[in-house]
Nucleic acid binder design. Structure first.
Lengths: 261, 261
DNA sequence: AAAACTCCTTGATGTACGTCAAACAGATAA
DNA sequence: TTATCTGTTTGACGTACATCAAGGAGTTTT
């Protein structure tokens, strides 16, 4: 049964009680982080209600991006970070001669745009893999509030550090691992993140093409496909187009983390 | 003539005038950033003298690390960042089954340890490639001062963003480029950074083995060696052990950035 | 409902790089 | 001086993955 429950996650994006604060206009309610059920993913925990209210000002507005649309492009001026509310993104770089490298796949609750800080310009493209909505968080505002709210400051640092560590892991994958190990790691990482969002531990719907997976993992789409087929033949997973069911997670973990001989 | 001038850089690590401030004890002078000629590399520019003095407190102490010694190891508790004063480091991860991935090479003026912020523990090893000295900068202090000095706050964000962008570039190398392109990019990056430190644009001394280069670039030491030899045969570089002289930088750039066809 | 897409799968063949192995070059030690 | 080490080079050969090619499966267009 490949009926992945990814479409009907346990999170509503808005709390059921939308009238917590009587003085709020519908508009301000709409962008209130304190009201958002994704908060625990993008915001620090353990804030006082006063701090929480301050942080509501981090999100200036929302923005919708159609499937295939660019949230930002390489070269664009950097002014804001984005928190993904719904939908999936990929970030990718293009080399001079047109080769594409996918540098990450991002999902709800994750922060996108950190690459722009260093030079005030983005140097990758962020493209929606399906219709998406993001919270626009002007970086100036984030910095101002970080100075007043140490918990937020620490949170911002952690988010950036997490990205550095994630990329370290990808370097390990690309530099040292074989195709099977890479794909195993990729699948395990995806379900783990989906699980943290209330989805199944074993079923997932891929939002990206084989080619995009391949670009991320440094292999060709044919190799991705063959490796999926191999896992399927071995009874480790069940693949039906973009629906994947993990039948034997331990086998994947062993592939990814072989024992020291 | 492969007489690389890397040993005798134009920077003295201490300003010649060590008695700027009469009230300073020799100890406090020793760790004063305001006094350090590497400042422009690790510290923000455009600080008032008051701010500059505040920032002197960022560096708690100095620490020497012998060649081959660990500045920190994977699993160590994270409390401080380090600014490299002298010497070279590599950072590397070890997979379960013992494969090593070098994630970066760091030189004077660069900041090391950012990977530890997210989990309060380091998850890579930082190893000195030669006898080295670092400035110990407790992260708590950095955060405190960042709240007071916006320029420092921005600087910290930029350093982390720069690391993210660097790793994006490495992902592109590992995922899309061939051995020659990787090594060309590696050499160009090294001389560029050395040049920013006052060294030659064309001559450099490698601080790492072929195996370490290979680990960073996702190739075996034999391939690194062969590619060096190939460049040498083609008159692009001159190699004598770890001394490298770049004879034709444009050829390297073309290799790294081939024209769109 | 056929046409035209895009995306995916699978087979046959090619190749860049890895593996194995031997020899060499400097550096340090005996 | 010779001996021992570590790091490097180079050759012969093997392989994991890329490339090329054809067909299939959904999806959208006409």
């Amino acid at each position: 049964m490949l009926n992945a429950k990814q479409e009907v996650g346990r999170y509503n994006t808005e709390s059921s009680n939308t009238t917590v604060c009587q003085t709020m206009t519908p508009e301000s309610i709409k962008v209130a982080c304190s009201n958002c059920n994704l908060r625990e993913l993008c915001m620090p925990v353990g804030l006082s209600s006063e701090e929480l209210q301050k942080l509501d000002h981090v999100v200036a507005t929302r923005r919708k991006v159609k499937q295939g649309g660019h949230l930002f492009s390489s070269g664009d001026a950097f002014t804001t970070l984005y928190a993904i509310r719904t939908g999936y993104f990929k970030t990718c770089m293009l080399s001079e001669d047109g080769r594409e490298q996918v540098t990450g796949f991002q999902m709800a609750g994750e922060i996108i745009g950190l690459d722009g800080i260093v030079s005030d310009h983005h140097n990758c493209n962020a493209i929606a893999l399906e219709d998406a909505e993001v919270c626009v968080m002007p970086f100036e505002t984030i910095e101002e509030l970080s100075r007043e709210v140490p918990v937020l400051q620490r949170h911002v640092h952690k988010i950036m550090s997490r990205e550095i560590v994630r990329e370290n892991g990808v370097m390990m994958l690309l530099g040292n691992m074989r195709a099977e190990e890479r794909l195993a790691a990729f699948l395990l990482n995806l379900v783990q993140r989906l699980h943290a969002r209330g989805f199944s531990k074993s079923e997932l719907v891929l939002r990206m093409t084989r080619e995009e997976i391949g670009s991320y993992l440094g292999m060709k789409l044919e190799t991705v496909s063959r490796t999926f087929s191999k896992f399927s033949d071995e009874g480790i997973i069940e693949v039906k187009q973009r629906n994947v069911k993990i039948l034997n997670p331990d086998a994947l973990k062993t592939l990814y983390n072989p024992q020291k001989l």
